[in-house]
Simulated scan of single mutants.
Amino acid sequence: MAASVFYIPSVNIIGSESLGSAMDTMRDYGWRRALIVTDTMLSKLGMATDIQNALKERNIASVVYDGTHPNPTTGNVAAGLTVLKDNNCDCVISLGGGSPHDCAKGIALVAANGGDIRDYEGVDRSAKPQLPMVAINTTAGTASEMTRFCIITDEARHIKMAIVDKHVTPVLSVNDSSLMAGMPTSLTAATGMDALTHAIEAYVSVAATPITDACALKAITMIAENLVHAVEDGSNMAAREAMAYAQFLAGMAFNNASLGYVHAMAHQLGGFYDLPHGVCNAVLLPHVQVFNAKVAAARLRDCASAMGADVSKMSDEQGAQACIVEIRALARKVNIPAGLRELNVKEEDIPVLATNALKDACGFTNPVQATHEEIMAIYRAAM
């Protein structure tokens, strides 16, 4: 067996009202000028200003770039980089969900390595670590605050570039669940299903290890037990905190075991139609696992058990079916669209979507490699 490598930020602060102690940690790093990367929504809510004030109290100057799109683009990275250079920033702080985190990673990577973010598409293409980055998370799903994955939409090609690079791992991740209390219902559902996808894809991945397995199974259980509560009552802080831990565990799993065709295919939908990533994952997840069940049935049976199904008297094949039933039931409970047609995905685009999906780095660790025909069939089944 080849050596396995386990990547994770060196410091990770999790728990309600933990932002203050995270700010103290930032002060101790000795940085002087921060670029805060966020989106207009969090900027309008005053969250960026709150961070700026907290930094000021600790003698750290800051400037805000709040132009991040829901699917961050090459243009967003370039614009943020200009703000960073104009203000001589020595660190980057991302505030929000996966979109600001990924945008910030892109900015910090190019700031340290030069060139254009497109130069770093693929695996470990950079020469040196990005500018120090702190990721303050406000959603419970993408785990981008603690991974070496950075997904940026290339506006010219209408595709999502997967940048998988040890150098984009933040130095500090912050999951203060009190910052997640105001998350809208639909975002809570989509990001929660994104986390479930991370855990299941990592568990059936060909690069899974005993460490990633433990993280993935615990994440699956916690999501199955808490997501519906977090969606139904956003102020349920116990469910919010459990989801913060669960999505972090799922991140630990996929950051090291990587992912599969759900993500490879979802990235194309996001890049092509600018759709929400978590929703695309949620719709595709059961269909891809139907395809994977022919080789990964025993693993999917474990996932069904983690989701609360009694698989004690089931064969691996029956257990895999039970897993797919559980995924669909959870998606229904949190009001995920039934199919891609509801998201206005067009039948005639499927051949090109499938072609691009097969080039996505996330698909390389899927438990079984698919043909172009098979990927098209999965897209069609998900319509």
Results as ranks from 00 to 15, higher is better:
L19G: 03
S178I: 14
I93L: 06
R332E: 12
G339H: 12
A246G: 12
T169K: 10
A250D: 01
P100Q: 07
N344T: 04
N281W: 08
Q318M: 11
L187F: 05
T138K: 00
V83L: 01
T68P: 04
I223R: 02
H69F: 07
A208W: 09
N292E: 02
H69L: 13
G15H: 07
E232G: 14
G96W: 11
Q130T: 02
V164Q: 10
P129V: 05
V134R: 00
I159C: 15
I375E: 03
T371R: 00
A250H: 00
Y273P: 10
D154A: 09
A162Q: 00
A246Y: 03
A230G: 06
P72S: 07
V168Y: 06
V352D: 15
G96A: 13
V164G: 06
D233P: 06
Y245E: 06
P100Y: 07
F6R: 12
E225N: 12
L109T: 05
A282R: 02
A230C: 10
I378M: 03
R58Q: 07
D310N: 14
Y29Q: 01
R118H: 00
N59A: 09
L95M: 07
H287L: 01
P286S: 01
P9L: 12
A309P: 03
A264H: 12
E347S: 13
A48V: 10
I159L: 15
T73I: 05
I107Y: 00
V231A: 08
M146D: 02
Q268W: 14
A354C: 00
A266I: 13
D28F: 04
R341Q: 14
T191S: 13
M222C: 04
S315Y: 06
K166W: 03
A48T: 11
A381L: 09
Q318F: 03
E57C: 11
G97K: 03
S10P: 14
S21E: 15
D154P: 08
W31E: 04
L42P: 12
G308D: 04
M41F: 15
M376N: 01
V63I: 14
V92I: 10
W31V: 09
V174I: 13
L187Y: 01
S173D: 12
R380N: 08
T212H: 10
V288I: 00
Q247R: 03
E317V: 12
V368L: 03
G270C: 14
Y379D: 03
E348G: 09
M252C: 08
E225I: 00
D39N: 10
H69M: 14
E241R: 05
N281F: 06
S126Y: 10
G260Q: 04
V77T: 01
V92G: 05
S126G: 08
A264E: 11
R32P: 06
Y245R: 02
A238E: 15
S173E: 07
A357S: 13
N53W: 13
A331N: 06
N255W: 09
E374D: 02
T191Y: 08
L81D: 01
P286I: 02
I327A: 01
P129G: 07
D233N: 15
R328I: 01
R125A: 11
G106P: 06
A189E: 04
A293D: 03
P210R: 01
H167Q: 09
